[in-house]
Design a protein around this nucleic acid. Sequence first.
RNA 1: CGGGGCGUGGCGCAGCUCGGUAGCGCGCCUGCUUUGGGAGCAGGAGGUCCCCGGUUCGAAUCCGGGCGCCCCGACCA
Length: 488
Amino acid sequence: MADDRTLTPRAEDFSAWYNELVLRAELADHSPVRGSMVIRPWGYGIWENMQRALDDMFKATGHENAYFPLLIPMSFIEREKEHVEGFKPELAVVTHAGGKELEEPLVIRPTSETVIYSMFAKWVQSYRDLPILMNQWANVMRWELRTRLFLRTSEFLWQEGHTAHASEPEAEEETRRMLEVYRQFMQDWIAMPVVTGLKSESEKFAGALRTYTCEAMMQDGKALQAGTSHNLGQNFSKQFELTFQNEEGVEAFAWNTSWGVSTRLVGGLVMTHGDDDGLVLPPRLAPVQVVVVPIFRKEEERTAVVERAHQIRSRLQEAGVRVRVDDRDHLNPGAKFWEWERKGVPLRIEIGPRDLAKNQVVLVRRVTPEGADRKAFLDENEALASIPGRLEEFQRYLLERAVESREARSHRGVNSIEELQALVDAPGGGFVYTGWSGDPEVERRIQETTKATLRCIPDPAFRSETPPERCIGGDAPSKMEVVWAKAY
RNA sequence: CGGGGCGUGGCGCAGCUCGGUAGCGCGCCUGCUUUGGGAGCAGGAGGUCCCCGGUUCGAAUCCGGGCGCCCCGACCA
């Protein structure tokens, strides 16, 4: 840590900056168990706001919540070949319970496809029972060798949606629909723009037919896989005999999808918006959107100022704003300013005797565009009425800034591996768009030599105006445009 | 799994080379003065120096063994 008061600047050591910020903003802390974390109230508050927004979106698209158990029979995980291959190395297994060795080991879920589709199989007989549109909020465990708070921990919180459909096109539509829900959520709530697209064979979910992804670009030029949506085909329904009688009375296997986002999104938020002073929160997710800091000298001033601060809080609360009054008296105002800025609160109202006299408040934005005044002196009523609008404006500003930052780190029309390498190795890193023949050998070779991975085959909205002609790997014609980046 | 670093009060660290009363900054408690960008003064509390063993009159310090954590890399949906 740089010292007690400041963070290591991003430009000096981005990784150190991130680690220090997460601890110092009190988002999370290391638990006694290596690789797992305690999410502290400030971090959990952000997650709760994410959950609420996402949950509403899931409900609006027809999904219901349910809960499946933490423990899964080992034999279930082993049922689907690719699935078990993908997860085996990172499974935590319960072998003993009740003082005895178990006959069959139980796996702590790394994800719940197997148990969920085995239950769906019990519940579905007819096409009339379909579709099933379900979601669960849960913890999962994947034993990771190298962990980082929020970005990769052994245990994490997430949601996993699981659906069953009567036809392949319906399942594909669902897969795409939920990917779009994620994209929208990340854009509108986290103010984090993402590139959506299809994962290559080597990067797709173990057991899926196809995996779609949301890829975000962090300030250090590395990509973050922020959410995935899988078309599972009939891989799981075949293994768990999830069948139904169709309209013709013929027995058929159901088509499944699954999709998830996790507390990793909190890490994405930090690395998208944070600055050298600390966290910057998009207002829509901020546990506290406005902090009111009273300033006073004498006792009479204190009474009057603190009373006004609480009036301001009530008025803003009535307008639906999340407000906190920081009336602690063992800290001076400056210390409070730094603290709330470190924690990322979007707006601050300072109110002191001079403001009371003039019926004004001082309004400060967590970040301001280059050259703009940081502090605004405003008529109190006017200021309070403008707060909801200002929060939305701040939300928009963060998104714009993030889009600009991503665009500045996106490189299109790249034709050679050398150029690709130079770009991803440069300090800003970023997304590199190239042509690809679809040959997995090219993908493997590039990954090995450049350490960049194929993030996705972007959806049409993100493709370059002129499609690439040649494959990055050589003289073969390009069959599709792809995005490369170093990734978390 | 490889490489590096670190374990000393709540946090950050010095002390270890060269063994001899365990220190500094921040934080914490009490009081007074302060409060518009990280307050000042005075007084105070708080420690199995990661663990085990050894050397020694004496170990935070030297030796042996162990444990833990962090970082970088490899691996990874």
